[in-house]
Write a protein that binds this DNA or RNA. Structure first.
Lengths: 375, 375
DNA sequence: TTGTATGCGTTATCAC
DNA sequence: GTGATAACGCATACAA
């Protein structure tokens, strides 16, 4: 319960100076006898170096931050799963920031870089404002942004081509003979929302389908919002035969509504999501989804950040992850283990894929034999 | 790009001493003129206080840790979603530790408390060894354990009664007329694995069902392992008419296998999981699951930790969260929105529940503070 | 090889 | 009120 031992404590106990203690602890050349005495004193005292003091001296916190809108979103989770081990292997701890997609919160996190409690940051802003750009430029530590930023922004950047992703999905649905392809989007003032809206319009036009505003609906990137938006869309355009959803959560909401209304998926309405999260394989029917390479983006971001920390003064880099279409039963239409239709530039996922390979559950709980609580 | 301004920089610029700067910055009484000059200098320089130096002085890092086996597990995710906002509201940052259920890693994290980079820790050990107990006793910062620990362990503790949870599920299945109730468990050398195995045996015995070892199978707490274990069980006991799975991931694996083998759920085999994660509402059919109150446990742990930080020298507390049975179609058998069978001490979940609402779930509050342990 | 002394950026305790 | 100055715990340049 005492106030943890310091190198001073050790020095006294070993009868040497604190400098010697520090040297031994850092593996610098020392006389064997000194080393022995220091080490045994340290062991006896249960010495653990104070990382705060060390950080103050070294100007490195050995911590890196990850800031996203909401930990609950499986997309971010997929990224964290990749990011964490990479950073950890490099000796960094991970500090989590949930910003609620709030711009002020994000700016605060960026300003927080000045506090020096993290050596760098991976951030996923849903909206990129002028203030963001100002903070990126003034950032006091390396920042890697996942998502698109304007050319010339002085940050490393990992992006995906969601326009191409939308095109893959729309063409897939079109290739299945669908002609009334609806789009359920998230907020248009977000980067992905705006990009996907534009991409949808473009893809539809490229296929020569008539432009019908009734086919596009906006909600938010959550399941319940997706359900509501889908309901509105169905009311306005009852003849839709396909739905592209701007992410998997929205698609789940769409499935909820379609089931409730008795429309068969995919026979009556084919449904596709985006992000290809674990949810896609869990949904029923399994959800066709555009993979935007979330794990890859997470890993790439982590590696960019580590590279940047190793050499500060190189040009900002941009890594682009190609989208892939992963076809499942929600559009393929065939439950039998036969071959789903071949799709250009796409990948076909096996239903047996273990989406939760790394998930170990079994959270602690009351021990069996002593399950009784003390009264 | 320069090396961030410090109070010294400000002092020079404002023509005052660093002490005055510190006072102004901390809102201590100062002459208006001094305050004005300091503030404007600080603003012009874009000063941000160095949290490391501040921590060294104050001996507080304003960071708290959360250590679990794997961030990818939806159970832990549910907890983090509750923990993060609570800690944040109290001014703490969250440092994440993924231990891979490795005892050595867990011990390392506990030892890390000596490094003072976190002021406290919430930990979920899958196995509790003697070394754990030793480290709990020697911990240099408050620790809250989610999961059971032996009586008298000097940590605050949040637990759930999974014995009762297993009983609820088994009785529910029995109440549906099932008499060949199988159990697919995780490793028996884990705390939850051991507890649930014992609870299953006891529940079956209490119902007067014959003890049949063929009905219990052990795998691991993952979907793929659950599938394999279920396959083995089905081969050994083809006549099972119900399956209780030790967590939701295992249950998903069981559903995979049952579907593959053409057994209808729940008509041929009723399936229930445990943990009531988001996965349960996504599965098809929606999965009956024993809620062990993960969000509540997370929140309770966070609050216990904050309380402890506020007053170090009170008795360790134990919070127990009561399990609830959440009945869905995988056992209720009826897809129509009719009334599922009434179950004692249970809750019926609506299919429309939004699993991604940030404020987690419509789960009712069942935190039962069992009060202090008898010392 | 070892010890002394200094600084990392703050806060806090003194005198003035 | 304000300004030197001493910690906080560690690493290191320099002297011995």
């Amino acid at each position: 319960m005492s106030d943890g031992p310091t190198i001073t404590t050790i020095a006294q106990r070993a009868g040497v100076s604190i400098a010697s203690v520090s040297r031994v602890l850092n593996g610098l050349p020392t006389k064997a006898e000194t080393e022995r005495r220091v080490m045994s004193a340290a062991r006896e005292l249960g010495y653990v170096p104070n990382s705060v003091a060390r950080s103050l001296k070294s100007r490195r916190s050995n911590q890196l931050g990850f800031a996203m809108a909401d930990i609950g979103n499986p997309v971010y989770l997929a990224m964290i799963r990749e990011i964490q081990p990479v950073l950890r292997a490099a000796g960094y701890r991970l500090v989590l920031h949930s910003t609620n997609a709030d711009t002020d919160d994000e700016i605060d996190v960026l300003r927080g870089l000045g506090e020096r409690y993290i050596d760098g940051l991976i951030m996923i802003p849903l909206r990129v404002t002028g203030e963001h750009l100002k903070m990126f430029a003034a950032a006091r530590a390396p920042v890697v942004v996942i998502g698109s930023v304007p050319e010339g922004t002085p940050v490393d950047n990992v992006r995906t081509d969601s326009r191409e992703g939308v095109r893959l999905a729309v063409e897939h649905l079109h290739g299945l003979g669908r002609r009334r392809i609806g789009f359920v989007n998230g907020p248009l003032d977000t980067v992905p929302g705006a990009a996907r809206a534009a991409a949808y319009a473009e893809a539809v036009r490229a296929l020569g389908l008539p432009h019908d505003p009734a086919l596009a609906e906006v909600g938010d990137f959550y399941r319940a919002d997706g359900a509501r938006a889908t309901a509105r869309l169905l009311e306005r355009a009852p003849d839709v035969d396909a739905l592209l959803c701007a992410n998997d959560l929205i698609a789940l909401g769409a499935l909820d509504v379609l089931r409730r209304e008795g429309r068969r998926v995919p026979q009556d309405v084919a449904v596709a999501g985006m992000d290809d999260t674990d949810l896609a394989t869990l949904a029923w029917p399994p959800l066709t989804s555009v993979s935007l390479g979330s794990p890859e983006r997470g890993r790439a971001a982590a590696e960019l950040l580590l590279d940047r920390l190793a050499s500060r003064d190189r040009e900002p880099r941009v890594v682009t992850v190609e989208p892939r279409l992963v076809v499942r039963a929600s559009t393929a239409g065939d439950d039998a283990p036969g071959e789903p239709p071949a799709v250009d530039a796409s990948t076909v996922d096996t239903p047996a894929r273990d989406v939760s390979a790394r998930d170990g559950s079994a959270v602690g709980e009351t021990v069996g034999d002593s399950g009784r609580e003390a009264p």
